[in-house]
């Protein structure tokens, strides 16, 4: 018996994965990034189809409620993604500076 919430999650995961696939095809993201997202959404898919699997994993990890496992891993993932955005932002900033510097030196 598949519950409504599972259906919603599955549809969302498929949608999100298709976005990643499209961006990969457009060469907007690298192969490694695409594999990363495939792994993430695939595990979401597997877990929502087999909720008892979440129970098993959380039990093995010593987390009492399976829901907590989902919350913990989501928080970790968000932290990681946020960090990556910071790193990217820092790189963009440096590129802007380099551009501004070139302009300053070029104007005579």
């Amino acid at each position: 018996m598949v519950e409504a919430i599972s259906v919603i999650i599955i549809i969302f995961a498929l949608f999100a994965w298709s976005r990643a696939l499209l961006r990969f095809k457009d060469k907007k993201i690298k192969g490694s990034e695409f594999s990363f997202w495939t792994l993430i959404w695939l595990s979401v898919l597997v877990l929502s189809l087999n909720p008892e699997l979440a129970g098993l994993i959380s039990f093995k990890l010593g987390i009492e409620r399976p829901v907590d496992l989902v919350v913990y891993s989501s928080v970790l993932l968000l932290f990681y993604l946020n960090f990556r955005i910071y790193v990217k932002q820092e790189k963009t900033e440096q590129e802007i500076t380099e551009l501004v510097r070139e302009l300053a030196l070029r104007k005579k």
């Binding site: 802007i96 501004v100 104007k107």
Partner: peptide, 9 residues
């Protein structure tokens, strides 16, 4: 004078 078109620090 050299000009940065925007503030970069």
């Amino acid at each position: 004078a050299l000009y940065h078109v925007i503030n970069r620090g």
